[in-house]
């Protein structure tokens, strides 16, 4: 194998197109044309153009992400805009808490603000421990009871079932059976991950004693999702104020460490709970230190 005497640059041997001296000598015209063709071929490299493909990929990627943002923001909007925008009785603006016992509350009663999600298991435990205390204090007007409904579990599973449950309990409140509906939601709480069915929502209303025109009114309120936007607004407002989880209970704006109300054998102690609530003040041990920075300022 004869080595060509050409002065090929050492670093890139064999890369130059075939340009044998023999050919060049015998057919100078053809060779010049061939060199031009080769040069042209090299300039517009046969095969895909990296810059063009890169631009297409970049544009497609940007469109995909922007479209994704639009789809997601529309989806999260339509989840609520499908529902009604009604405010519960006595609530003046979106995001504010709803006073459950406005008609009976006595002057100077301490304010108890509860942030709850009907599908949250710890909310259920707290309800079982102190629910009847809260209810009797509220019905006697000894506390001002403010509810802020939250949808924490919805943000875990992507459903709007907690939101629906809260909207429906407000429909039940319109019909005058708030507590009965409230208790049934907790008594029949679906184990995680699970949702209430629409049939269950209706059964709870019937079992709360609604029938005839009242049941029809409840049904249309539930079907329309009358308070879905309001529930979304209380979840957002409380989240912005640092109340990101459930349950949370505030007494006159101070976060309560509800697990501190326990007997020596670690059972819930409703008597101690009621005593602290009626005093309107919490000791350091009864205060939830992790929530002290949270603002319960949306307490209405």
């Amino acid at each position: 194998m004869a080595k060509p005497p050409a002065k090929t640059p050492g670093k890139s041997p064999g890369k130059t197109p075939a340009k044998t001296p023999a050919k060049a000598a015998s057919q100078p015209g053809v060779s010049a044309r061939q060199a031009k063709i080769d040069a042209a071929r090299k300039a517009n490299k046969v095969g895909p153009n990296k810059i063009m493909i890169g631009s297409v990929v970049a544009v497609v990627a940007i469109i995909a992400v922007v479209a994704g943002v639009i789809i997601n923001s529309q989806a999260s909007k339509s989840a609520v805009s499908q529902g009604g925008k009604a405010l519960p009785a006595g609530v003046t603006a979106m995001g504010r808490g709803w006073v459950e016992n406005a008609s009976v509350v006595k002057a100077g009663a301490p304010t108890v603000s509860i942030y709850e999600d009907f599908r949250c298991p710890i909310c259920q435990s707290v309800e079982q421990a102190f629910g009847s205390s809260i209810q009797s204090l509220a019905e006697a007007g000894k506390i001002k009871l403010v509810y802020h409904f939250k949808t924490v579990i919805d943000s875990h599973d992507g459903s709007d079932n907690s939101q629906q449950a809260a909207s429906n309990v407000l429909c039940a409140a319109d019909a005058g059976v708030f507590w009965k509906y409230h208790d049934q939601l907790y008594a029949n709480q679906p184990p995680e991950p699970g949702t209430f069915s629409n049939a269950q929502f209706t059964t709870f209303a019937k079992d709360s004693g609604l029938s005839g025109a009242k049941l029809t009114a409840f049904q249309s309120c539930a079907t329309a999702g009358k308070y879905l936007n309001y529930v979304k607004s209380t979840d957002d407002a409380s989240y912005k104020n640092g109340i990101t989880g459930t349950p949370a209970i505030f007494l006159n704006g101070v976060p309560m460490n509800y697990s501190s109300f326990a007997t020596a054998d670690q059972q819930p102690d409703p008597a101690a709970f009621e005593k602290a609530v009626l005093s309107g003040k919490l000791t350091a041990a009864q205060t939830d230190q992790t929530l002290v920075k949270a603002k319960a300022k949306d307490v209405s």
Binding site: N72, A75, S76, A79, D154, H156, G158, Y239
Partner: peptide, 9 residues
């Protein structure tokens, strides 16, 4: 996917 509220949270 399918849980925009959760992704935002």
């Amino acid at each position: 996917m399918g849980n925009p509220v959760g992704a935002a949270r």
